[in-house]
Computed example of a mutant assay.
Amino acid sequence: MEPHKENMEEYGRLCHERTKESMIKNRQIQDKKETTPVKQSDMKRTRRDHGELEDIMFKLFERQPNWALKQLVQETDQPAQFLKEILNELYEYNKRGTNQRTYELKPASRKSVEDTLAE
């Protein structure tokens, strides 16, 4: 196949322009937006006394029957792992249902708390 000889100059000019346009970089550098770190706090959380923290937790659970771990960490300002230890002792974790992924007071703990409040 051979191109038409009449349009050979025009075709050459068209190819040359296309090549020239493809070599031009039209991208622009954008300034990066400063992102704030998602770090919760610069200071490490210090553990409170076990009994003192239990009292605080009981007061929180009087206010609201179900709490997520994240909410408890914010309210008590305690390390999550330390809270989990206490939660596993006195509270049960809801895996299913409407209160999924929350903790609530165990029935046995409820009775002991009610007895101490009655006295």
Rank of each mutant, 00 (worst) to 15 (best):
W67Q: 04
A80Y: 02
I86V: 09
A68R: 13
Q71S: 15
N99D: 09
Q100A: 10
L53A: 11
Y93G: 09
N7T: 04
M43E: 12
Q30T: 08
I29F: 07
C15V: 07
Q40C: 08
S112F: 03
E6S: 12
W67I: 09
T36Q: 11
K20S: 14
T102A: 10
K44H: 08
N26T: 07
Y103F: 11
K20M: 01
M57T: 10
K95Q: 15
R27Q: 09
K25C: 07
F58S: 03
Q40P: 00
E62T: 14
F58G: 02
T35D: 15
E6N: 14
S41F: 05
F58R: 04
L90S: 11
V113N: 12
P65R: 13
E10D: 12
V113T: 13
H16I: 11
G51I: 02
M43N: 10
T102W: 03
N88D: 13
M8I: 14
M1Q: 01
V113P: 07
D55F: 04
W67M: 01
K70E: 12
K111M: 14
D31S: 14
T102L: 11
D55I: 07
R101L: 12
V113G: 12
K5V: 07
P79H: 05
E114W: 08
N99Q: 10
K44Y: 01
E114R: 14
Q28F: 05
S41V: 02
E119V: 13
Q40W: 07
G12F: 12
R101E: 15
A68S: 15
M43T: 05
R18P: 03
M8R: 14
F61Q: 11
K5Y: 10
R47I: 11
Q71A: 15
P37L: 11
T76S: 10
V73K: 03
R63W: 09
V113E: 13
S41D: 08
Q81F: 05
P65I: 04
M1L: 01
F82Y: 01
E85H: 00
E17W: 02
E2W: 03
K106Y: 00
E75V: 07
L117D: 13
L60T: 04
R48Y: 00
D42Q: 03
R47Q: 00
I56M: 14
Y93D: 13
L87M: 15
H4K: 11
L105V: 08
D115L: 09
E10Y: 03
L90M: 05
R18D: 09
I86L: 12
F82V: 02
T98M: 12
E54W: 04
D49G: 07
L53R: 08
R63V: 06
T76N: 08
